[in-house]
Nucleic acid binder design. Sequence first.
DNA 1: AATGAATGAGTTTTCATTCAT
DNA 2: TATGAATGAAAACTCATTCAT
Lengths: 231, 231, 231, 231
Amino acid sequence: MRSTTVNDAASPFPPPSQPRSRTADAAPGDARPVKMRLLEAAQAVFAAHGYSGANISDIVAQAGTTKPMVYYHFGSKEGLFAAVLEEVYGGMRAYERSVDLTALPAAEAMAALVRVTFDYHAAHPDWIRLISVANIHNARHIAASATIGSRNATVVQVMQRLLERGVADGVFRPGVDPLHLHMLIASFCFYRISNRHTWSVIFDRNLNTAAEARAQLELVTEAVARYLRPD
Amino acid sequence: MRSTTVNDAASPFPPPSQPRSRTADAAPGDARPVKMRLLEAAQAVFAAHGYSGANISDIVAQAGTTKPMVYYHFGSKEGLFAAVLEEVYGGMRAYERSVDLTALPAAEAMAALVRVTFDYHAAHPDWIRLISVANIHNARHIAASATIGSRNATVVQVMQRLLERGVADGVFRPGVDPLHLHMLIASFCFYRISNRHTWSVIFDRNLNTAAEARAQLELVTEAVARYLRPD
Amino acid sequence: MRSTTVNDAASPFPPPSQPRSRTADAAPGDARPVKMRLLEAAQAVFAAHGYSGANISDIVAQAGTTKPMVYYHFGSKEGLFAAVLEEVYGGMRAYERSVDLTALPAAEAMAALVRVTFDYHAAHPDWIRLISVANIHNARHIAASATIGSRNATVVQVMQRLLERGVADGVFRPGVDPLHLHMLIASFCFYRISNRHTWSVIFDRNLNTAAEARAQLELVTEAVARYLRPD
Amino acid sequence: MRSTTVNDAASPFPPPSQPRSRTADAAPGDARPVKMRLLEAAQAVFAAHGYSGANISDIVAQAGTTKPMVYYHFGSKEGLFAAVLEEVYGGMRAYERSVDLTALPAAEAMAALVRVTFDYHAAHPDWIRLISVANIHNARHIAASATIGSRNATVVQVMQRLLERGVADGVFRPGVDPLHLHMLIASFCFYRISNRHTWSVIFDRNLNTAAEARAQLELVTEAVARYLRPD
DNA sequence: AATGAATGAGTTTTCATTCAT
DNA sequence: TATGAATGAAAACTCATTCAT
């Protein structure tokens, strides 16, 4: 049940366009263009402190540049945040496109899809935070975006085709809404990361162990499998 | 399958300690104590703008009082936010305690529990936002709280007893972790509200209709039912 | 021809609400309220550098207070400028009201009015600059003002009554528009101050001497007298 | 009384070196040299916002070029403003030189000179604003100019010769200072434009109509005529 | 419990100017 | 001539917090 074509080696996704070691301030001789460095620094700072809590000074310090560059390249703090979100969604979309489940039988493909979603969220806590931040601000920063939006829903298409195949193969029951099923999976994968801090306080249990992660993945995989299983 | 003893009248939960008509600024002659008015205003403003985005001036204006009152009653902005979060969790806990599922057969009780959780989240979007905000700040505002924390997990106990009863009655399969199952339910109920803004942008579908809500409730109810059903 | 009831001692008008020695920064122990000190400092700085050229830091330094006080008391830089202009026009209006020409024969009263206008402008170069600044910005800062505007035109009423009296006495010819005549006088009195810097450069003549002032006053007085003289 | 050789066709002066249709940004393929385009854009922007309120970005955008061009051609913002003022005074001087009053009898020539001055100011509100701006900054931008200054006073010479001729012809009284008389005329013509915004607010009367302009021109013409008339 | 005024440090943003090409 | 990107300094404005009353 574990053989998939996708990224079989557990979960260490190489964060697509994420810095390799940009925890400290950018080295003076950083070759990459200022705009990119700003985007990366901004991603980290917005994720760490929220939209209003992030401050431009921190971002530019971390990017090894100066404040006016933010305004030159992005127009405003809001523009910078919007650009960060575009990057986040761009990374997701690229990732979703790279998933190829066609070689697997439907049931196994679904398990693989769940796992891939699970791992992706686990590997990108900053992106989860950024999306939370965007939602707190009613997603107004992405509303205007041309690149994010409507047709981005690659997953839903993948899901739909997979469901159809499973139904055709007699391994899934019919009548399941692909978007809703994606929501069931995504919500679990997102929430366990996004809300882990409050959960850690409220429930007396360390939920951040590898064992927990494994058990949680199994739960959602199993729930999806059973939800789809024909009666 | 829809008859429960709990809150059968659909879902319009009266927000426990939420203002009755506090959309505009507090009327000058508002009788309720300043501390309460501040708490309510703060809840609204923090929910609307995040922790750093909220500002004391707005809060006191909305509460119909003055800034020093915040420091008199709560010591600091952080203290005020912590107090708001205590209120949120206090309201939740109170609500969970009020749920009585003992009169129902296990399977129906579980459906009722799902529904109740679903409705509670739907009815309290501000609280969802506040919890998101708390998580973005690593829940450091509630970590110190004495009243929030550890033993608050009423739901988990309820869930555990319900699972045991269902297993005893032969309607649930054994071996299900109550905390994980609660996470499956809560994540869906939370996420569909918390992330609805980004979803509206990304997926070309209005997810905020009553029909959608019904379909989504059915999905999660069904998923839980099938997950628990003995093979 | 020189006997008037108004301020016979040449021209040293005590600037009504202007500081006596506020050239340097406000002394720390300045008793007057911050708002007033700000207004005075702002008047000086706006007059000296124009609206955009003036900067809040200079103003607050000169007023012996801090930047937020500007925003607390006036809302914005624009609000401060508007308040300064209200003061300017308030001072003018107060001054105009104080002029009493009823005791003089019409022709002498007119000469007195001209002289008073001449002297007032000469004594308040800052106000002239402020009005120039206001006009460069299309007077949008005073457009909204309730206190400036319409009925402020005390001079015009004074002028009108004086013209009527002169006509009745047979010393003025009829049919003269009081507003236009006021414009003729005011324009000369204003312009000789407002444009003295460019004139000094363009015309090879020192126009800032006492003798010049005397000659100019005589010119405008004479021009008005001859303009009104019956044929 | 209205027949003059100068510009009899009412008043629409073609603004000498003013753009033909430069209301919007310069078209990409604008053939005229960058320096000229900059000068025109700067004239408009400085007139609209004052010296400090004008910003280089706006100017270069409107001129369809880039910031370094300003520094290449004019050295600094101050240099650009100085160049604009030179243009303004250059335009005036050129205009004054073009006025030929020799063919008219002295009294009519004087009326023509008044009218020409009146019309010129009315046709160039931007230049009036620029001169106001220069004065607010104590004319320091033109002080250093070689081309502006001292001997530019063509008008005064014209005036002087005209006065002499009138005296000789017995139609003007002697002893009138040409510079002062020019000041009387210029102040009125300048002020009615420069201060029209504040006047519109203060006096409850629309002073920008054609009828008003006619009446005002008549006023100043008449005042000058009566001022010069031998007793 | 309440207020009006004040403060200090920090926020986002702007702007004239210049560099490398 | 021309440009895209960058810079340093300072601009306006904000905000949590506190004082005197």
